[in-house]
Design a protein around this nucleic acid. Structure first.
Lengths: 190, 190
DNA sequence: GTCTATAGCCAGATAGAC
DNA sequence: GTCTATCTGGCTATAGAC
């Protein structure tokens, strides 16, 4: 196969550490220790920390899109699918593994590392806008609702909900923020 | 005065660097260089990086509350004050100097550093809930609107808007997210 | 109060043996 | 493919002179 067992463990360890500690806070040594690999292994499979991080970030971004599509592309009305997406089980206190990278100056400064982060949110906003537009088209939602800006609001509530939950050390503010936007959206139902 | 000029410059430099690079990404050396102070100065005025960071974070949190109160405690209806707060001029691409700290594992792991972050968002959600409750009480907003959860939504839209803007390298998604939640809120007006 | 010197440790990577 | 040895430089702090 194209990726060895060791390479695979290095990628998964990097994904975990990027989620827990960010790019700046993650050292090659920490990655190697978690993966149970030596320095030689890591520098054989990857050119360095940026290369390994890029592989890890791409995989995490792809995973996030896949999970979102499970609810957004599922059965039900527009509001039902968005509700399912927002209320899906999540590691709220760990935050969003993609959104967290936007706070990492070294990631944002590197066009290659930043691209998958950008693309993920562009896709997510677009996908949510599609779902909302379907709701408007079939009369489920008010014709006055703007799908694109409302999609941005929904994604922002999620990302901001993570921030509030981490600040509080509790999932409660996240759930409140989600309940609040769903309440506002319910008022748009015909 | 209680704080010397040098101490003051160290605090301000720390505030800037915490905003730009976070706690993990900010070294004592970088702080000293930006402040134009030597190591001796820094360790004379502060016991170390955590002490200096705590002073900086407390000041930033206080400043954020003061700025929010300018709009939330100003004139106008509930929706007008919330609109003024959300549309206030901001360094959108730099993100929120308090919210960004929630992504810093070393800040969240230290109860003293984390407390001002927690308190800031508790206060902000409470203050917004008060404003929304006033709107409901005077009949400006629908009686079915829950002030506490909607307040969490509004704060989350702001924090998440910053995330989307940084990911995109553009303020557009932030403005869309704000427009979206204000549109949903407008539909609650009698 | 501020400076320089020093110290131990870690980051990030290279070299070359096996 | 993986290992150990090695290197340069930065991090964080202490010591003690001025």
């Amino acid at each position: 196969m194209s990726t060895s067992e060791t390479s695979e463990r290095l990628i998964e360890s990097t994904r975990e550490l990027l989620w827990e500690r960010g790019y700046v806070g993650t050292s090659p040594k920490a990655i190697q220790q978690r993966a149970g690999a030596g320095q030689g292994s890591m520098y054989h499979h990857f050119s360095g920390k940026p290369d390994l991080a890029l592989t890890a970030i791409r995989r995490t971004a792809e995973e996030m899109r896949g999970k979102a599509e499970q609810q957004l592309g599922g059965p039900g009305t527009a509001v039902e699918r968005i509700t399912a997406y927002l209320r899906r089980e999540r590691d709220v206190l760990k935050g969003c593994p993609v959104g967290r990278l936007t706070q990492d100056p070294d990631v944002m400064a590197d066009a290659a590392l930043r691209a998958p982060v950008d693309e993920t949110f562009v896709w997510l906003r677009g996908r949510l806008a599609e779902v909302l537009a379907e709701g408007v088209a079939c009369g489920e939602l008010s014709a006055g609702l703007d799908p694109a800006v409302t999609a941005a609001t929904v994604v922002a509530v999620l990302q901001g909900g993570y921030v509030l939950a981490r600040a509080a050390g509790s999932t409660a503010p996240f759930e409140q923020a989600v309940d609040g936007v769903l309440g506002l959206l319910a008022a748009q139902s015909s």
